[in-house]
Amino acid sequence: MKIITCIKQVPANSTIKIDQVTGHLVREATPAILNPLDKHSIELALEIKESREDVEVIAITMGPDQARLALLEALSMGADKAILLSDIKFAGSDTLATSYTLSIAIKKLMNDDDNYLITCGAQASDGETGHVGPQVAEELGIPSITGASRASLDGDVLLVTRGKQAGKLEQIKTRLPALVTVTKGVNKPRLPTLHGITHAFDEGALLSVWNAATIDADEEKIGMAGSKTKVSKMYTPEPKKENITLTGSPKEIASKLASMLKEKNYI
């Protein structure tokens, strides 16, 4: 069977800035990293691979050429193959267009074989939507389970535990093919070893680059044309407010504080 792990390269959050004049994102100086939750998604795929005989792990991403690095990271961790979907025609994709692109690449990869699992991080640290996973599943017509805090595969049955509401967990199962998105709690991702890194970087054949023509994409559904949402403006949020001091008797302050916490939804 194949486990396909959909990953994304994201800018390191803390350094992101807006150009105050143009209002555009200043990206050049920003180091790009593998989306942190995707490491957990890769780890899940690798753990399943190690527990069975028949698994091939394939990392896939859509992005510019530099997104190769995210795939090399997945290969360094132990993925068997990697596919970069890269084409100027994919630029400007929203989650709908991205999920279309990923899912037709997955269809090509699977070639009518139904024996597969897709793993994704629950969300990317840049857009933070969590849409692409479930939308890929929808496009492929397979079930999706989001936000897993535990996941295992028994035969072709995927068993997932996830938070339901405060203090409650829910166990869900489904049969393959299926898609699961994972949260931080699902595992501890391994670090690539020096051997893993040299293997990934020195074996060029592990990584393929596919463009719109390779996956026979419908040009109406990819990139800007296939996107239904547009970002109309970006700006830096107001800085944190000055601190406040609560006064009164302990009882009065306690009430004020509790009411403030309730208002802010901490309780």
């Binding site: 690095l69 090399l72 360094s76 670090l191 690539p192 020096l194 890194i197 040299t198 970087f201 020195d202």
Partner: peptide, 18 residues
């Protein structure tokens, strides 16, 4: 090269975490 920087980042993460 890219490999050098990637090794550096990985080793740094290992050292800081472990």
């Amino acid at each position: 090269d890219e490999r050098y920087y990637f090794i550096k980042r990985t080793v740094r993460e290992f050292c800081e975490k472990v």
